[in-house]
Design a binder for these strands. Structure first.
Lengths: 194, 194
DNA sequence: CTCATATTAGTACCAAGTGCTAATAGCGGG
DNA sequence: CCCGCTATTAGCACTTGGTACTAATATGAG
């Protein structure tokens, strides 16, 4: 034995970990054992074959790409909505939403949740944000659940305007407040909703 | 011929693009032609075989993970930056950034570009947005390129505060203005920047 | 020496191809 | 109607990087 089996297997593990693209043949050369030994080692350590390893890496990327894009449609999940009046959504902060360094949620996600909720609560074909004022009161961390409550504070149908206030909390503590001045197309006259 | 060759090849291209994990056999079923035809098509279009495709995707991820610098924390691409003073980024609005109905960019993307630029221009380990005022002046459509210019307007190191104004334009027309009050950790005293 | 574990060797087989040759289909033009 | 051309299909040998399995050989411990 060139080296105790255990040592070799440990080395093998880390070797594959930091270069998943290595073949059994290359590994056999690296450790001075036969290809079969490498294969037995992989079995014991339940390390998949080259192609499977590569596929996993690729799939991971692919998923990441798919998920990093969808800052789309409504951010967060709407759990209650009363059109033209109020709405509530929840948003679970995941690792991809935070700064790497400090795990604090990036501002635009909180804004996105609040803004898309403000759009949703408008009972409108087209609702656009015109102006907005935001306050980020407390940092939000990965793993926390943000509850956003939107309330329509003022409606001015003739002016194509509506005002929405959104308050976001984590465990009852207010973390974010935003006010939104919205532009609405159809001038939904007071009494004819649906 | 089920379909003109050209059409099939175009479809093939996009089919592989949005699922690189598909085999020739599956493709042959999808298009109702023989496996050989798929292979000839791949030759002509110089699309590599499944394993090579997967490997490329995996290599890309792998490289990305290794570098993974805080550059990718910025929404949009920074094309010029002068720390603690000003910065410019561009953001190409793609179909996934707009409302389906009217193809108008969703507010939070413009905010995300501006806010992350404001964070980037801070010469800080930790910079957080405290308050913000936004004006969405003109709708932005898919296909347009948004140029955001950030300018640090005021620095109050002793108070851990800095103020940034971001103006975003499309073809010289201002579409968005945001002001950001930022919290900064280290109180970078006026005269000791490296 | 013997037994167990470790290692090596060898064979058949698989997936998803490449590379090459050859047959066939379908159509347009003269 | 036949010729020529492109498109399509088929078939076979070969490649990589394996799996699955069997069998032979080391090698060290008791």
């Amino acid at each position: 034995m060139r080296k105790p089996k255990k040592e070799r297997q440990a080395a093998l593990k880390s070797s594959i970990k930091d270069n998943p693209f290595v073949t059994d043949e290359e590994l056999s050369a690296e450790f001075g054992v036969s290809v079969q030994t490498i294969r037995l080692d992989r079995m014991e350590l339940s390390i998949p074959e080259l192609r499977e390893r590569i596929k996993h890496v690729a799939e991971k990327t692919f998923d990441d790409e798919v998920k990093s894009l969808p800052i789309d449609e409504v951010i967060g999940e709407i759990i209650d909505i009363e059109l033209d009046n109020k709405a509530i959504s929840i948003f679970d902060v995941k690792p991809e939403h935070v700064f790497q360094r400090n795990r604090i949620a990036r501002g635009h996600h909180l804004f996105a949740q609040a803004n898309s909720l403000a759009v949703a609560v408008m009972n409108e074909e087209l609702a656009l944000t015109v102006k907005s004022e935001l306050q980020f009161l407390k940092p939000v961390k990965a793993g926390q659940r943000v509850v956003a409550k939107a309330q329509v504070t003022d409606r001015q149908p003739h002016k194509h305007r509506a005002f929405v206030k959104v308050v976001s909390t984590v465990d009852q503590a207010v973390v974010f407040i935003g006010t939104f001045e919205m532009y609405r197309t159809t001038e939904q006259s007071e009494g004819d909703n649906t």
